[in-house]
């Protein structure tokens, strides 16, 4: 290859590189990487098929029903304490319905925490790990209720982006349930 040919190739290479750099500089989004969204409304769902009753499943359901009944007769910190005990019950494996029951219990605990003084952060920290955008949620009212609790807790703690995202996911979940019910 001659010297002049090598020089021409270098010039073309540098020109192409310069053009690409200039184009990137003109587009601030490209420079910043993937476009940032204000909030995340991603919703992953899965249907819960009715399962065959198992002794462990029935025992769990009865224990949670008992927790709800005891909480009904209490208020304030006493109610929160009982609901926390319910959340500590081990969720039986192989019982898909237990996921819904636990989310419903978590939502109720979140609502009780939100009603207590300075309970918004506690509610947010308790429920946020249960309904992250990465996790598929059971297609059920309990999931929507838990997402509303997270939205309320986020709004109370001044995180409008998390509140909008959680509310948006909740409305999406409920709209899917409406579609399921429509004839």
């Amino acid at each position: 290859m001659s010297t002049s040919s090598r020089t021409r190739r270098k010039v073309w290479g540098l020109a192409t590189l310069g053009l690409l750099t200039a184009l990137t500089a003109c587009d601030p989004d490209a420079a910043a990487g993937p476009q940032r969204k204000a909030f995340d409304t991603t919703l992953r769902t899965h249907a819960i098929a009715p399962s065959t009753p198992t002794p462990e499943g029935l025992a769990y359901l009865r224990a949670v029903a008992d927790v709800h009944a005891r909480a009904d007769g209490l208020t304030g910190d006493a109610r929160i304490g009982v609901l926390r005990q319910g959340m500590a019950l081990p969720q039986p494996s192989g019982v898909p319905e237990a996921e819904i029951v636990r989310l419903d219990l978590a939502a109720r605990l979140g609502e009780a925490l939100l009603a207590s003084p300075n309970g918004a952060w506690a509610a947010r920290n308790m429920i946020a790990p249960l309904v992250p955008v990465e996790r598929s949620l059971p297609l059920a009212r309990a999931s929507a209720r838990a997402l509303v609790v997270l939205g309320d807790a986020a709004a109370k703690t001044g995180d409008d982006a998390l509140a909008m995202g959680s509310y948006g996911r909740s409305v999406e979940m409920m709209s899917l349930l409406v579609e399921e019910l429509e004839p």
């Binding site: 939205g151 709004a155 409008d160 409305v171 409920m174 019910l181």
Partner: peptide, 16 residues
């Protein structure tokens, strides 16, 4: 469900 959706909508639009 409709009632709940509309209730959450109120909260969302209030934030918006």
């Amino acid at each position: 469900l409709a009632s709940s959706i509309c209730s959450v909508k109120e909260k969302m639009c209030s934030i918006a």
